[in-house]
Simulated scan of single mutants.
Amino acid sequence: MAVFDAKPALPPPVATTGAWGWIRRNLLSSPLDIALTATGLLLLAVAIGPFLRWAVFEASFGGTTAEACSTAKGACWTFVRARFDFFIYGFYPAAERWRVDVVFALLATFIAALLWNRVPGRRWVALASVTVYPLLAFWLLLGGGGGLALVETSKWGGLMLTLVLAVVGMVAALPVGILLALGRRSKMIVIRIACTTFIELWRGVPLISVLFMASVMLPLFLPQEVSIDKLLRALIGLIMFQAAYMAEVVRGGLQAIPRGQFEAAQALGLGFWRSMALIILPQALKLVIPGIVNTFIALFKDTTLVLIIGLLDVLGAVQAALVDPSWDRVAVEGYVFAGFCYWIFCFGISRYSQSLERKLQTGHKR
């Protein structure tokens, strides 16, 4: 019997791998794709040139006053540089801004620790991030004890306020939304009607009306001696509004779980809460990660509406700075800076959700 030596497998063709292979598959796979790619490149060439001239080559970066932009033909980034502290901290006292920096640094540390899979004790880190960190951050930002000077929430503003509203809203809206979704599917008619009424009521009004009611109308129904902080009222309204939308997202995930999973949990002798926590909710939340992230991104951008009740987030700080008559032609630069701030955070949330989807993918891709 003849014996044949096995030859090593040949590498794939160069044209099907690497960057060139990706380009051929996604940009040049058909005449229509080639035409669309060429059109897109032409539009980019037409748009990028003038933008780079305005934003970089003919822009003003130095100085701290409007005179530095008098000779510039392009963007006046001097405005952003001169008002950068105000855009980040608002009216927070300059001598106490180190407290905000510490809160930002701790937030970045917790996020990095949760993203890195090799960090020991990640469960404890996650638990500390939702229990210890919020209390510590609140104490540092507000002060009034432990040797820290009191900084009233009326002085909070800029990107700091945006992050406070967004982070607190995200952390609180998800569990409230889960409870509302479970309540809407409850077999007890009283709980089901209450949760359904709550969800439909909050989803039926715009957020701007919710914030206006929380800021202006709510104090009218309280005793004169009772006073609720304006920022707290805005947070409560923001959380309740987003929790109603989150409930519908989670309910969609619960409806996608096969009935057999519920029956299997009952067969194991698990009660309602244990079956939900251990079997049903992990599967449902994994299915609706895109919807949850979309709600989080909408919440992050909706924080701009607090401007109507006198709270200056990063966009409000930009608009307040534009009132200065000495900066009479920098509106575009200010809005570009604010837009970039929102984009960088929303893009980061989106990218993390995609990596989380790939990590939790247990099915077979089609």
Rank of each mutant, 00 (worst) to 15 (best):
D85Y: 01
W54M: 07
F262P: 14
L238E: 04
V190H: 06
L356D: 01
F86G: 07
L159M: 12
S129Q: 02
E248I: 02
C341L: 05
F84H: 09
W343C: 11
T362N: 12
Y335D: 05
L278A: 14
K230F: 00
Q361D: 15
Y92M: 05
M160V: 02
D33G: 04
W156K: 04
V103S: 08
L312H: 15
L285S: 07
I289S: 06
V318P: 04
V3I: 08
V167M: 11
F110Y: 15
A112D: 05
G363Q: 15
R251C: 10
P219E: 01
L106C: 10
T37C: 04
V249R: 15
L114Q: 04
K359D: 11
P290M: 05
T304A: 14
A94Y: 01
G158C: 09
W343M: 15
A35Q: 12
R53L: 14
V80W: 01
D302C: 01
G49S: 12
G143L: 07
L299W: 10
L10E: 13
A137P: 12
F296R: 08
A68L: 13
S154T: 13
A149H: 06
G145E: 07
Y352C: 11
F110I: 02
G269F: 11
S154W: 00
W116S: 09
L270D: 06
F241K: 05
A95Q: 15
S209W: 04
L254R: 13
V119A: 09
A243Y: 08
I178S: 00
F347W: 13
P223N: 01
A19S: 11
T362L: 14
L36I: 09
L299F: 10
L281C: 06
E200F: 00
L307K: 09
Q255V: 06
M188L: 06
A66W: 12
A72H: 12
I23A: 14
A113K: 09
K73A: 15
R83C: 05
Q261K: 14
V306A: 10
I308P: 09
A267S: 15
P223C: 01
E248C: 01
